[in-house]
Design a protein around this nucleic acid. Structure first.
Lengths: 175, 175
DNA sequence: TAGCACATGTAATAAGTTACATGATTTT
DNA sequence: AAAATCATGTAACTTATTACATGTGCTA
């Protein structure tokens, strides 16, 4: 988590930024952020400064050189594979036990959700490209966005394929 | 979780089965399984039977009609979207701060891991098709397997694309 | 003046993993 | 005789979310 201290900002702002930028692959709640910041201050990775001059008092956190080193080190170690869970697949796995049409309905719902997500991704890429055109981290941000787009497109294709298969088997309760 | 009670089996066997079949989208540890079984017995969703006749004493759990109803109901309600976290993407997002070549190395590692996963998936599909050819749930199992394959292929393509992009920008520390 | 956005935090709870404890049986 | 596998379980710990408490300042 410590890594979010790239630009100086408050805990609240961190949350806002995450909502805007990393939503699709990372989020943290306040219950995580504030204690984490505290412990990082204790470890000397970041410093705090009470900002009373602005509109409203807030604590601005800033990364220290030690924190920067720690961040670079973290960027070098490989991400350990995290077991991810997919409730949809679990339901499909037991699809045999389901009532007729239930699984197809699940896939349709997923397909819709993916379609919306794809639109959002694509809109965000365009917005990013205009708003931060010359930001040095831009190429990296685009890579993460493309990841989301590629994955989503693949899953949409899978949904369509799966629905066709279900239909072929007469497992869709249609009108 | 209750859903794993499709065929009667022990907690240990459940874990084994999960390792074999649902590994790529669902796993539970014993620390989850045993308490869950206990609570399901209490709720009347499953029954236990101490099996002493076999090689070794074990407790065989079996689903009740109530449990079956509950399972069918669960298969109907939509899966709530779960926020997933991707450490790799998080690292790429901060790639600007990384040492030259670090991000490329991450992507290369991911690519390798995905390649292996893809081979495993494909081998498993073939094995499943021969071992359980006529199992009624087979079409569903195949759908989940195809999901994994589709996703993995898409991500491999993304890795290659991303590596090409990094190379173009001279961000790969190659020999 | 009501409500929303800003802002920080804590406590309760939920969810899940890891490690350990225990012991039988089978394989090497 | 040792090691692996079968088998069940618990305790400690980690991780994360949710809900609550508190208060300011701006805007409709």
């Amino acid at each position: 988590m410590g890594l979010l201290s790239l630009g100086p900002m408050s805990g609240y702002e961190m949350r806002q930024m995450m909502e805007q930028s990393t939503t699709n692959f990372w989020t943290e709640s306040y219950g995580q952020i504030y204690p984490a910041l505290k412990s990082m201050v204790k470890d000397g990775l970041v410093t705090v400064e009470e900002q009373t001059g602005g509109v409203r008092a807030k604590k601005v956190y800033k990364i220290t050189p030690l924190g920067e080193r720690r961040l670079r080190r973290w960027l070098q170690v490989g991400a350990k594979p995290q077991a991810y869970r997919n409730e949809l697949l679990l339901k499909i796995f037991f699809g045999d036990q389901a009532e007729r049409g239930a699984i197809a309905a699940q896939v349709v719902a997923k397909r819709e959700q993916l379609g919306e997500a794809l639109q959002k991704y694509e809109a965000k890429v365009i917005w990013m490209e205009t708003a931060f055109a010359r930001h040095p981290a831009m190429p990296y941000w685009k890579m993460t966005a493309r990841f989301g787009i590629a994955e989503t497109k693949a899953l949409i294709a899978w949904c369509d394929e799966t629905l066709a298969e279900l239909e072929k088997r007469g497992l869709v309760s249609r009108v």
